[in-house]
Design a protein around this nucleic acid. Structure first.
Length: 308
DNA sequence: CCCGGATCCTGCTGGC
DNA sequence: TGCCAGCAGGATCCGG
């Protein structure tokens, strides 16, 4: 469940603890952890040896480390999937996490990629210029992104995000609004948890058709998503100090401050109605039935779907 | 091109 | 007590 706030916490930790250090060796413990690196694990290891970790950058849920200097043109890309973690290890006798997938040996320690459910991955990728000439993500001034990230849209915390264009693009979709929020090629960084929280804050049902939303609704929704992610970042941003990112990437915010996600049967913090769970895309959606009423299905032919 | 559903993976939980 | 179905869910792939 690492979404934007959790990945940003990891990026910040990487930036503060391992930048400037040199990769002496790489141990790939599970080849599938580097499946996105097409030339294979051995190639990744060979090309990373001796490189210096130069900058930590994030866009949406993607994280990458620029190598050597801005001109090297390559980056180590990481996606944490559902359960990925990056753990900073110090010393000679390093602990072995049971789900250790790859270990980057640095001077005086290591950076460990740990991932229980194996949806995360690592790769070494070349950089391609950003179409708008703006920095590729948070943490670097380089106007480029790894090739594997080129199709990922800017996120709501990115100062170079074109919000009016996003509002128009979202409204031009012919889908349900929660689906649109989760589409990383439209706006990145939002996952199932913060999508539900943003929809609750905006008072919108996730099955509302995007094309029928007013611009003011979309702006309110995007503001809500930004606010909830900023709040989560502020609440969870300290965990890396212990050289350990929370289990499953969840921030402290996950436990304490969610209004509806995972709260089925509990009262809505706004109106006291009982939060309900709906099936959605083989997973779950949580909402307040009063603050987020199901859209009417009659009328314009676009229907909300799901359970009653 | 756009949309939506299936699929990948592992470990935990709950029902019988 | 043990087993197994169901669930968690990112991104991607494929069919329509």
């Amino acid at each position: 469940m690492p979404e934007l706030p959790e990945v940003e916490t990891v990026r910040d930790g990487v930036a503060r603890h391992v930048l400037g250090r040199t990769v002496h060796d790489v141990e790939v413990r599970r080849a599938s952890a580097v499946r996105r690196h097409e030339a294979g694990p051995a190639d990744l290891v060979a090309r990373l040896r001796g490189r210096t970790l130069h900058a930590a950058v994030r866009r949406g849920k993607y994280l990458w480390v620029l190598l050597d200097d801005d001109a090297s043109g390559e980056a180590l890309v990481a996606h944490l999937g559902m359960s990925g973690q990056l753990l900073v290890r110090t010393g000679d006798d390093l602990p072995e996490h049971p789900h250790l997938r790859a270990r980057f040996r640095l001077d005086g320690g290591a950076l460990d990629f740990v991932d229980q459910r194996t949806f995360g991955h690592l790769g070494l990728d070349d950089l391609v210029p950003t179409p708008d000439g703006a920095p590729g993500g948070h943490g670097s001034g380089v106007a480029a992104v790894p090739r594997a990230v080129a199709h990922i849209a800017r996120d709501l915390l990115d100062p170079h995000l074109d919000r009016p264009a996003l509002v128009a693009r979202l409204r031009s979709r012919r889908t349900e609004v929660k689906r649109a929020l989760l589409d990383q090629t439209l706006v990145s960084g939002i996952g199932n948890i913060y999508a539900d929280e943003a929809l609750w804050r905006a008072g919108l049902h996730g099955a509302r058709p995007t094309g029928a939303l007013r611009p003011v609704d979309v702006r309110r929704l995007l503001d809500a998503a930004e606010e909830v992610m900023r709040a989560a970042l502020a609440a969870g941003g300290t965990s890396f100090d212990a050289l350990y990112v929370n289990v499953n990437g969840a921030s402290g915010y996950f436990d304490r401050s969610l209004a509806v996600y995972g709260q089925a049967g509990r009262p809505c913090p706004r109106c006291g109605s009982t939060v309900v769970r709906d099936a959605f895309m083989n997973r779950s959606s949580f909402r307040c039935p009063r603050c987020q009423p199901r859209p009417r299905t009659a009328g314009l032919g676009r229907t909300g779907r799901g359970t009653a």
